[in-house]
Design a protein around this nucleic acid. Structure first.
Length: 273
DNA sequence: CTTACAGCCTGGGTGC
DNA sequence: TGCACCCAGGCTGTAA
C-alpha cells in the first residue's frame, strides 16, 4: 500500500514525465466510475485539456499536479493505486482507469485494482490543509508540534500516528516500524508519552520514512513504482508482517494484534511501555 | 468536540 | 480443480 515513501518515489519518477507538458486528452476506461462520483468525467476533461503541468508535489499520501491557471489535480492512490508512464496509443494496461495524454503523445496512466483511489480538481489547496497536518518528513513535523498534538489525544499512540492531521503520510506499516524503533508500545495512550519518548518517536518516524525513500519504498501487498518494479525496503522492515518471527534486536517473538481495525505488529519485550 | 466503526473493493490465500 | 470464505487497510460518513 502506498504510504509516504512510496508516493514520494512515484512523484520523483513522474516529474520528468509530466513537467511542462500540455495535456491534450483524458482517456477514461471502464471500471473508473467511482472516480467520477463527485464530478463527471466531462468535467475533468474540460478542466484538464489545454492545461500544462507546471509543477508536481506531494503532501502526505496525496499527489498534487500544479496546472496552469492555478488549478490543481489531486490524486490519492489509497490501497492499490499505481501510476505508469505510457503513450497515447498503448492498449489498456491492467487495471488502468484513466490516462492523461500530453501533446507529445506520451501519457501517464492511473491503475487501481480495488477502485479506492480518488482524483479531484481544485482551485486552491485549502481542502488538503483542512484534512492534513504537516508532512511527516517536513521541518514543520517536529517534537514541539507532536507534543502539542499528543497531549490532547485520548486514543492510543498507534491511532494518533495514523491520524493524517497529526502525521500526514504515515500509514500502517511505518506507524508500526516507528513505534518499534522508538521502543513504544502501539497501545500506549498517546497522552501518556513523555517528551523524551515523543522526541525519539519523532526522530524514528523521519528515520524510518527516509530510509524507505532511499530504498524506493516497501513492496508489501501491491505497491509498484512507475516502471512496475517493487521497492527494496520490504527486506528491511523490523516488525510489520513478521508475527511469529524473532525481533531483530532481542529475539523475542513479534506478535500481532488489532488496533483501530489495523493489523499491528510489535515486540512485546522491546516495546513494553 | 472526540473516537469508533462499517463500508467501499478485489486478488490472493486457505480450508474443504 | 473448484468453491466459499476471509483478509489486507486509507479514507469517509455516520453513530455514539
Amino acid at each position: 500500500m502506498p504510504e509516504l515513501p512510496e508516493v514520494e518515489t512515484i512523484v520523483k519518477d513522474l516529474l520528468g514525465a509530466v513537467l511542462n507538458k500540455k495535456i491534450v486528452a483524458l482517456k477514461v476506461f471502464p471500471g473508473s466510475e467511482r472516480l467520477f462520483i463527485k464530478h463527471r468525467s466531462s468535467y475533468f476533461k474540460k478542466q484538464l485539456i489545454n492545461h500544462s503541468v507546471n509543477h508536481l508535489s506531494r503532501h502526505g499520501k496525496y499527489i498534487i499536479f500544479h496546472l496552469s491557471e492555478k488549478k490543481f489535480l489531486i490524486m490519492h492512490l489509497r490501497m492499490t493505486g499505481s501510476m505508469s508512464v505510457s503513450t497515447r496509443k498503448n492498449s489498456q494496461l491492467k487495471y488502468e482507469k484513466i490516462r492523461i495524454i500530453f501533446s507529445d503523445d506520451t501519457a501517464i496512466s492511473f491503475m487501481d485494482i480495488r477502485k479506492f483511489g480518488t482524483i479531484d480538481i481544485v482551485n486552491t489547496l485549502d481542502i488538503l490543509k483542512d484534512k492534513l497536518g504537516p508532512d511527516a518528513i517536513s521541518d514543520e513535523f517536529n517534537v514541539e508540534f507532536l507534543v502539542d498534538q499528543l497531549k490532547r489525544k485520548q486514543s492510543s499512540i498507534k491511532a494518533a500516528l495514523l491520524d493524517q492531521r497529526i502525521a500526514a503520510g504515515v500509514g500502517n506499516i511505518y506507524a508500526d516500524e516507528a513505534c518499534w524503533d522508538a521502543k513504544i508500545n502501539p497501545l500506549a495512550p498517546a497522552a501518556s508519552l513523555k517528551k523524551k519518548q515523543i522526541n525519539q518517536l519523532c526522530n524514528s518516524i523521519k528515520m524510518v520514512l527516509n530510509n524507505s525513500i532511499s530504498n524506493r519504498g516497501t513492496s508489501i501487498n501491491n505497491y509498484m513504482d512507475l516502471a512496475g518494479n517493487q521497492g527494496y525496503h520490504q527486506t528491511k522492515v523490523a516488525v510489520y508482517g513478521r508475527n511469529g518471527e524473532p525481533c531483530i534486536k532481542c529475539r523475542s517473538i513479534i506478535i500481532k494484534i488489532r488496533v483501530v481495525g489495523r493489523g499491528t505488529f510489535y515486540c512485546p519485550k522491546c516495546q513494553n511501555k
